Simulated assay, not measured.
Amino acid sequence: MSVSNNAVVSTALGYVEANPSELDTVRDLVILSLLGPPITLRGTLPAHLACRAVVLTSDQHVLTIRDGERPGWQFPGGHVEDEDCSLLGSTLRQLRELTGIDPNVLRPESALPCDLEAVPVDTVPGLDEPEHVHYDFRYLLHLPSQELGFDVAVDVRWVPVDELPGRLGAKLRRSSRTPAALR
């Protein structure tokens, strides 16, 4: 059972309700989802979505990976597969495949993503994908420590939240300074 466009729209609208200043980021995604083919399929162009895990430890470090297919460090995740029943479920599956982290030791912050970003993707030699846009649904997952599973398939590094750039870094720094009882 794959994730439907209606489920994507519902999640995107829930995200905008929690983050009204980010409506412009989500508007085109909602329109494409309502009018186009399945937005979760990697072949859907000019854009489709990806799910990524923002794994945060109690000592305020975030997991990043380098997988060899794409340049640079990024959050673990990727394309939604047909067997995925939800966007959060897709995120957890991919995280386990890449890092070996057991989903049962994670505590999701919410069923909604903590961040949603339109990311331009250049043509990647060897992946047979033209230039397109990924709508990255980023889910915040709490992990007690920096210990990973045994089946790590990628290079990993832990980045202090204070060094994480951009809007997501600012969100995480704000939430890390909010007492847990008030979140």
Rank of each mutant, 00 (worst) to 15 (best):
A111L: 14
P108Y: 09
S145C: 03
L63K: 13
T11G: 02
H79Y: 10
G100L: 10
R177K: 08
T99R: 00
E131R: 14
E97D: 09
Y135G: 02
F137L: 10
S90E: 11
P71H: 12
D122G: 15
L168F: 04
N19C: 07
R174G: 03
F137A: 04
L95N: 03
L127W: 01
G72H: 05
D67M: 01
R138N: 10
R157A: 11
V9R: 05
Q94L: 13
N104H: 14
V154W: 04
N6D: 11
N6P: 02
V55Q: 04
G72D: 09
P37A: 03
L164R: 05
G126H: 08
L88C: 10
A153R: 13
E163K: 14
I65S: 02
L41K: 06
P38A: 01
S58L: 15
H142K: 15
A53K: 15
P37V: 02
D136C: 06
S58I: 09
R96D: 12
P46R: 15
E69M: 13
V80N: 14
L148F: 04
Y139K: 05
L34S: 07
V54A: 12
P179F: 07
V62M: 10
V30T: 02
G166H: 05
L13V: 05
L98E: 08
L141P: 07
S145F: 05
V156R: 09
F137Y: 08
G78T: 13
G169E: 00
V80W: 08
K171Q: 10
G166T: 09
E129Q: 15
E109D: 06
P20L: 02
G100S: 09
I31T: 06
A118G: 12
L49N: 09
P37E: 03
R167I: 13
R42W: 01
P20N: 03
H61P: 04
P144Q: 15
E97R: 14
P103T: 07
R66Q: 15
G43D: 14
L182S: 07
N6Y: 02
T99Q: 01
E69I: 12
L182M: 05
C51P: 07
V154M: 03
N5K: 07
L148T: 03
G126A: 06
L112K: 09
V133C: 12
S176Y: 00
T64R: 09
R183W: 03
L112M: 02
Q60P: 02
G89Y: 08
P103M: 03
A111Y: 11
Y15A: 03
G14P: 01
T99A: 00
T25K: 10
T11V: 11
A53E: 10
A170T: 09
A181M: 10
P144M: 14
A18G: 11
L168C: 01
V54N: 07
E147G: 01
E129M: 15
V30H: 00
L95D: 02
P76G: 13
R177M: 11
A118I: 09
L95S: 01
A118F: 05
G14Y: 12
E163V: 03
C51V: 14
R52S: 10
